[in-house]
Amino acid sequence: MNFVEINNISKSYGSHKALLETSFSVKKGELFGVIGPDGAGKTTLFRILTTLLLADSGSARISEYDIFKDYKKIRQIVGYMPGRFSLYQDLTVEENLAFFATIFGTTIKENYELIKDIYVQIEPFKDRQAGKLSGGMKQKLALSCALIHKPEILILDEPTTGVDAVSRKEFWDLLRKFKNMGITIIVSTPYMDEASLCDRVSLMQEGKIMQINTPDNIINNYKPILFEIHSNNMHDLLIKLRKYHNNSNVFLFGQTVHYSSINEINKDDLKMYLKNNGHANVEINVCTPTIEDCFLWLMNQNN
């Protein structure tokens, strides 16, 4: 049986539709990623799951509890970390942790084993006020606070946004660890490169889920040939490539341009076209797509 089941959840704010008939399910002990840019509806979805918002239609359950009827039960078993840092800035690290332990009716001591791995990292600062911690430390403290009552499921809203690369990696290592302890985790992120760290991901865009699959399968499902193109004038290259074919996907990717199209593209024809358009020194290679390529491709198809 799936641990989390979401069926056709919709939510709108006035005329703006934040979520459109969203459905997915998460298995027990799974690390499930919700990937999408700002405004995709990730926060709204998480707030509905954590019983903070009511959906306009649809239903959902976590474990055997309905998110509407059994909201009190859900609040007991969920560890939630909102997108904005939501601890008390004027309380110290230890006071924050003790407070969240108390309101869940437990103590730091009781569940110390669970948070030990994170807590040793923030312990040197335990007398520092939370507002004075670095971004990465803040997120680790927030994660400890969300874990302190030994939740069955963690719901983390963009925990790595605004955090440096090293801390991001450490944070994901921790999530892996908790997953291995049997805690189900639903995590959202705007960073496409983090998708490969999840068991399964759902790609979200404008309130709709475009695809749900394992990261590998999402890449395998990518049909067109992807070209990696480099030229001296990158800006002009973008313009020329956009004119080459209708229904193609062109975007800057680091030092190169990624190009794909639903039409059959011949590499030599493409090179010829670019040469005729003032790009003598082009380098064209076929490359394997990343999640970002898949996301942008799907996005383009939907539009």
Partner: peptide
């Protein structure tokens, strides 16, 4: 304003 209400609400308090 600070968003701490969100965490309080999501707790069983």
């Amino acid at each position: 304003e600070l968003g701490t209400m969100e965490v309080l609400l999501a707790s069983p308090l």
